[in-house]
Computed example of a mutant assay.
Amino acid sequence: MGKDELRQLLDDVKNNKVEVGEALNILKDLPYEDLGFAMLDHHRALRKGFPEVVFCQGKTVDQVARIFDALCGGRRSILGTRATKEAFEAVQGVYPDAVYHELSRTIVVHRGEPPVKKGNILLMSAGTADIPVAEEAAVTAEIMGNHVERAYDVGVAGIHRLLDKLDLIRWADVIIVVAGMEGALASVVGGLADQPIIAVPTSVGYGASFNGLAALLCMLNSCATGVSVVNIDNGFGAAAMANAITRMIEQKVGAALMEVEESNSPSGTGLRDIKRANV
């Protein structure tokens, strides 16, 4: 349950639109629900701003479908990662409007109003072979409520392709750089941009790349400032971190605007009340 859902429920109880007993029944699964094989964290949207994400790899198709069925109540949009086509078909049997992104291997079930876009995230990949990981990050960032732009196949082997993307680089609040082989793209972008860079090494490469270890070590040893690194092929983790940054920016900007409005208000009392309500 997200903040908007909980606020609406409390307003409905206050306005006698929902009985207290009915509200208690709705809240009975907070903070978690025991399915026997999984403990679903229904409280995560309140803490983190987005519901629990389903990591589908290693789960049976029936388990994936049952988890989606339990999570998709109310107005929550749910994301599943590392999903097979068979897992998607099982979810689609429960939610016919479910969408499968084959390249990124993600399942999305949209519920409620689309989130208000809060941040600009640029996805960059060194090569075409890195795009599946980049797309996992892109789909994740989008469903979490961000503007997402893509600049793919701009690796250092043809660096002029990267320099053509300087306007996009300047547009972004956060940049996610996805690269395999030697992983050099993250350092180059880090030398061009003043925004936070989240580097994602991929397992793409010949034998000495050691399934992404070479790119991981290269990114960890970057001399460019402002570059952080997530695990190999972890597009989701990069997007979740980028979303945390844009969410923090949104909150800080919102608080600053509230301060300005409050200072221009004759009494300021009402605005302070609004601010407290949004904490």
Rank of each mutant, 00 (worst) to 15 (best):
N221R: 10
T269K: 12
N278D: 00
N278Y: 05
K28G: 00
L30Y: 07
L192F: 06
D273C: 14
H147C: 08
V139N: 04
V253A: 12
A239D: 06
D69M: 08
V139G: 01
G36N: 10
K59N: 08
G180S: 05
F55N: 05
F236D: 01
I198H: 02
T106Y: 00
L163N: 13
Y95G: 00
D12F: 13
A179I: 11
V108H: 03
D34V: 03
A138L: 10
F50R: 14
H101Q: 14
V227F: 03
T202A: 14
I245K: 07
L40C: 06
A38L: 06
S265M: 02
L217V: 09
R82Q: 09
A277R: 15
G158F: 08
R150C: 07
A224R: 07
L10D: 00
C223V: 15
D4A: 15
N221C: 07
K118H: 10
V177T: 09
R105Y: 06
F68H: 03
A193I: 12
G237N: 10
G145A: 02
D69P: 01
V189R: 03
L271S: 05
N15Q: 12
G191M: 05
V13Q: 07
I67R: 04
E259Q: 15
I274V: 12
V91M: 01
S203W: 14
E182F: 06
Y152G: 04
A70T: 03
V178L: 03
E102H: 09
G58I: 04
D29M: 06
N211Y: 11
P31I: 02
V156E: 00
E102N: 05
H147P: 04
D167M: 09
V174Q: 04
N243V: 15
E259L: 14
V174H: 02
K165A: 07
L30S: 07
D273M: 15
A193N: 12
G2Q: 01
R7I: 14
V178T: 05
S228A: 13
E19S: 15
V227R: 03
L122S: 08
Q92L: 00
G268M: 03
T246Q: 07
F50Y: 15
V189S: 06
N25D: 10
L185C: 10
